[in-house]
Simulated scan of single mutants.
Amino acid sequence: MRLTRIAGVVSAFALTTVLALTGAGAASAEPLAATGYVALGDSYSSGVGSGSYDSASGNCKRSTKAYPQLWAAAHAPSSFAFTACSGARTDDVLAGQLGPLNSATGLVSISIGGNDAGFGDTMSTCALSSESECLAALATAGSYISSTLGGRLDTVYAAISAKAPAAHVVVLGYPRLYKLDGSCVVGLSEKERSTINATADALDSVIAQRAAAHGFSFGDVRTAFTGHEICSGSAWLHSVTLPVDESYHPTATGQSSGYLPVFQSLA
């Protein structure tokens, strides 16, 4: 009887040891940490205006000097997917940018909404047409921002959460383009510049509200760009340029000194 009891104790000890070594006794294995980074969005995220474009990205014009590339190079995430694309609207994000998102995605960045509101066409109108036409185009953009954009952002943000449920999402806004009463002596009127800035504020307000509603962080870059707007004398933003698609976009310094610190503080 004594030998049988000793044998049972030894067997139980051996089984416990095996379970401990293999983890078979645990209720469930700890999941791997979600540490991949995916950069979504439009030209402000792809880096249009900063040069050094990846030729493989084609018309998306993804730059090695864009804030997502700079952050990834400095922090070496376990994986990095850069799908932001020049000209992207909310529908383009949904249709072509979300593929890399999965359960291992721990960080997502995105700037989106400016093209939905007609940012490019509106600025072209302001640069090439009369003050009244510029103000009318800005009023149209403002109406879209207040009535329609929020719902489109909700659809994108919900899709991100569904595909990458563990991800921390940082939504980046847009800077004010002009320093008022600045150094520019030609070009748009002060009323046009003021209205452009007010429209950017309205855009950022809706983006910030919808990001908060989804539990995302909002990166407000307006303070970072203060003193570095067009007409400031130390601009981190292009005015009208050739090629024209780089107009009204951050320079390389705007990416590294404007967008990157704001994103880094929230990532």
Rank of each mutant, 00 (worst) to 15 (best):
S78E: 10
T83G: 00
L138D: 03
S43A: 12
S45P: 14
T64L: 07
T125I: 15
T122F: 08
P31V: 11
V38D: 00
T35K: 08
E131W: 07
G118K: 01
A88L: 00
V48N: 02
S78W: 07
A27H: 12
A73H: 05
G150W: 07
S50T: 03
A56P: 09
G99L: 08
T35H: 05
D92E: 02
A56E: 04
A88C: 04
S130G: 14
F80V: 10
P100I: 03
Y37S: 02
G142E: 03
S63L: 00
V48Q: 05
R89F: 08
A104M: 11
L94Q: 02
V48K: 00
G47M: 07
S86Q: 04
S57F: 02
S45E: 04
A39W: 00
S46N: 11
A162T: 14
L107P: 00
P100C: 04
L128T: 15
A84L: 03
T125D: 09
Y37V: 07
G87K: 00
S111K: 02
T90A: 13
A139Q: 13
M123G: 01
R152C: 04
S143Q: 11
S103G: 15
S132T: 13
A73M: 09
S124F: 13
S143E: 08
T125E: 06
A27R: 12
A159Y: 06
P100N: 01
Y144S: 09
S147G: 11
A33Y: 09
P68D: 03
T64I: 05
Y67A: 01
R62E: 00
D121S: 14
D42H: 04
A33E: 11
G99E: 07
T83L: 00
E30N: 12
S129N: 14
V156M: 09
S147V: 11
Y44W: 12
A76T: 15
S55L: 12
S78M: 06
H75I: 13
A136I: 09
P77D: 01
A33N: 11
I145W: 04
S109Q: 10
Q69R: 14
P100M: 01
A73S: 15
L149T: 04
C134A: 08
T105S: 12
V108I: 12
L128V: 10
A162F: 10
S147F: 10
L138Y: 03
S55E: 09
E133H: 11
A104W: 07
A117F: 08
S43H: 02
T83H: 00
N115H: 04
A27P: 08
K65P: 05
N59S: 13
D154Y: 10
A73I: 07
C134L: 08
L70T: 03
I110D: 05
T155H: 07
R62Q: 06
F82A: 06
I112P: 03
L98W: 01
G151F: 09
A29D: 09
E30R: 15
S130K: 10
G114T: 13
Q69P: 07
I110K: 04
C60H: 00
A162Q: 09
T90C: 08
D54G: 07
T105R: 08
T90H: 03
R89C: 05
T83K: 02
L70M: 04
A73C: 08
H75A: 13
A72N: 06
A117E: 01
K65H: 15
A137G: 05
L153C: 10
C85G: 11
Y67T: 02
N102P: 09
S129T: 14
T155A: 15
Q69A: 15
N59T: 09
I110A: 03
E30F: 13
